[in-house]
Write a protein that binds this DNA or RNA. Sequence first.
DNA 1: TTCCAGGCGTATC
DNA 2: GATACGCATGGA
Length: 271
Amino acid sequence: MDYTKKHNDIILYQPDFNLDETLDCGQAFRWEKKPSKYECTYSGFFLDRPLTVSYDGECFIFHDTSEEDFLAVWADYFDFKTDYSEIKLRLSADEALKRACEFAGGIRLLKQDSWECLCSFIISQNNNIPRIKGIISRLCEHYGHFPTPSEMAEETPESLGFLRSGFRAKYLVDAAQKTAEGVIELDKVREMPIGEARKSLMTIKGVGPKVAECVLLFGMYRTEAFPVDVWIKRVMENYYPAGLPDVTQGIEGIAQQYLFHYVRQNHTKID
DNA sequence: TTCCAGGCGTATC
DNA sequence: GATACGCATGGA
């Protein structure tokens, strides 16, 4: 990693990284774009650890961040130890994926917290991204931090009414209770064979194939997980009727991110 | 007004 | 196992 310390900041030179593409592409919901003197600035959290990060046109500035925190927390969260040039080169053997990688080459898979991710994608079902962000924002504002499973297990669908999350409130309560009671152990699910992990997550009410896949990919860094929503379904029908190409083997989820972002911005067509 | 949003539970066949 | 339908909410 190519970084230096400057006053209280970490200055990082990092290829294959774009703040908009990574933080506002529907994998995370607690990052907010901020006006600033920089080209681009976002503020957000990982496990209630706050960060403001900017891009000045050349380098990334991790504001008020110690070298210890940068190395121990943020370098891992942003997956800086993974070479995305190599990933994109590999995926680019496939024509449609090549275009998707060229379109948003700065996407990186965030290593998010599994519990927060579980809640986020339960909320995401039959919902749109701005409203998902609003519900999660009200959730964090209410507790002063992202609630723990134990805190949320005390709630009822009625007491969560302030979220205005609709029918999803009862699912959040069930996820919290199963996690708090240890019926589901997310740290163990993370290590399970993928089929077993899916099955385990789907015992939670409101967690079906799509949400389980998102939790595995975005909250457990299971890069072989491949969430299929309406957008990806169209991609599969139009470009990969016989299934994903071999170049995606083991990193299907990362390929999915490039494809998802591309078709969403381009009204389905890859050309 | 109607439709839709990173789906899922339930009923029914 | 496949398919149809309802579901809370709010923006387009």
